[in-house]
Simulated assay, not measured.
Amino acid sequence: MRRDKHFVTLGETNDSAAASPSSSSAIQRRWRDPVPTTLLWVLIPLLLAGLGVSVFVLAVVHNALLFVGIIVLSLLVVAFLVWNLIATRSNRGLYIFLDRAPDSDLRTATDGQIVKITGVASCGDISLVSSYEKVARCVYTSTLLYTCTGWTSMLSYFSDRYIRWELAHLERQAADFYITDAKSGTRVLVKAGNNSKMVPLIEESVLVSTRDNNREISLTLKKWLDERYLSVDSHLLRLEEGHVKEGRGITAMGMLSKKNGTVAIVPPSEPFSTGCFRQYFLLPIEIDALLLKSSDENGFMPGRVGP
């Protein structure tokens, strides 16, 4: 189950706010909701007005056809809007868009064009180390600590999907790195550092969970919490971490820059749209940031170079 973690800034780290890697404040939600708030304020009165007219017709003419039609139409519209809001929060539209977009040919792509490339990641001048597992030589890292309060003895018997986890701490960083394009063999600089706008579509793995009967906190976790002055007494905990390590497959989408003999992918100067996905009933989303996704999840073989 995917959760939207890209617009939350609660408890974010500021260890490297002035350093070259992008910190959590820059790596957050960088797209517009497909359902504008103004549209909701227009549709709700219209639906209520239609419902009122149908009730009046039902009372005067005793014709239930219009009343049933308005009810069905209202339910369909509400379901469509709710579906799009849920899909936006879970990044479903972005995953579909990035997976369906074809890899670009950098040999024919022009400067300023939106491109997508897939290849093997390698570190630039700065490499990152993951916060909890201390995985070195990373180009992207994220660590999230969730807590849950209340009847913890009862909650431990429920599945994670039925528990309301609250984000208590967030650390997320990205640095400039290189991708060896699998299609052309070109080594491309991806400008993800220096507080570049970026949306990471990279899943975190659960490393620690105190939902089991044994809720003792390990010395490693206790040290990690103490270093960040975090107090989580009497809470259920879940710690997740994700990273993209050098040598792993990664997909990047952004604006192509060809200047001074350097081929780079940078955040777009203007928002671009995902377009509609009619088969999934999804409205278009406008994005004004880099998109990054770990390609190893889809079976990408590091080191494979296309023709």
Rank of each mutant, 00 (worst) to 15 (best):
T210L: 00
R211P: 00
D212T: 07
D212M: 04
N214Y: 09
N214T: 06
N214A: 04
N214G: 00
R215V: 04
R215Q: 09
R215F: 01
R215M: 02
E216M: 06
S218H: 07
L219R: 05
L219T: 07
L219I: 04
T220M: 02
T220D: 13
L221T: 13
L221H: 05
L221K: 10
K223G: 07
W224I: 07
L225A: 13
L225V: 10
L230K: 02
L230W: 00
L230N: 03
S231T: 14
V232D: 08
V232F: 01
D233P: 01
D233H: 08
S234P: 02
H235E: 15
H235F: 09
L236R: 11
L236H: 08
L237Y: 05
R238N: 14
R238A: 15
R238S: 15
R238C: 15
L239P: 13
E240L: 12
E240C: 15
E240W: 01
E241R: 02
E241N: 06
E241W: 11
E241T: 03
V244L: 15
V244M: 11
V244P: 11
K245C: 14
K245Q: 15
G247C: 07
G247S: 09
G249W: 11
G249F: 13
G249D: 09
T251Q: 05
T251P: 03
T251H: 05
A252F: 10
A252C: 15
A252P: 14
A252R: 13
M253W: 07
M253P: 08
G254D: 06
G254C: 03
G254I: 00
M255T: 15
L256H: 11
L256M: 11
L256F: 11
L256V: 12
S257M: 03
K258A: 05
K258C: 06
K259Y: 10
K259N: 14
K259D: 13
N260K: 15
N260C: 10
N260D: 15
N260Q: 14
G261F: 04
G261E: 06
G261V: 09
T262C: 07
T262I: 15
T262K: 14
V263K: 06
V263I: 15
A264Q: 14
I265Q: 05
I265H: 06
I265E: 06
V266R: 08
V266Y: 01
V266F: 02
V266D: 11
P267M: 02
P268G: 00
P268T: 02
S269I: 01
S269R: 14
E270F: 14
P271D: 08
F272A: 02
F272R: 05
F272T: 05
T274F: 08
T274V: 11
T274M: 08
T274W: 09
G275T: 07
G275F: 06
C276Y: 12
C276H: 09
R278Y: 12
Q279N: 08
Q279K: 04
F281I: 04
F281P: 00
F281C: 06
L282C: 08
L282R: 11
L282M: 14
P284Y: 09
P284R: 05
I285L: 12
I285R: 08
E286L: 10
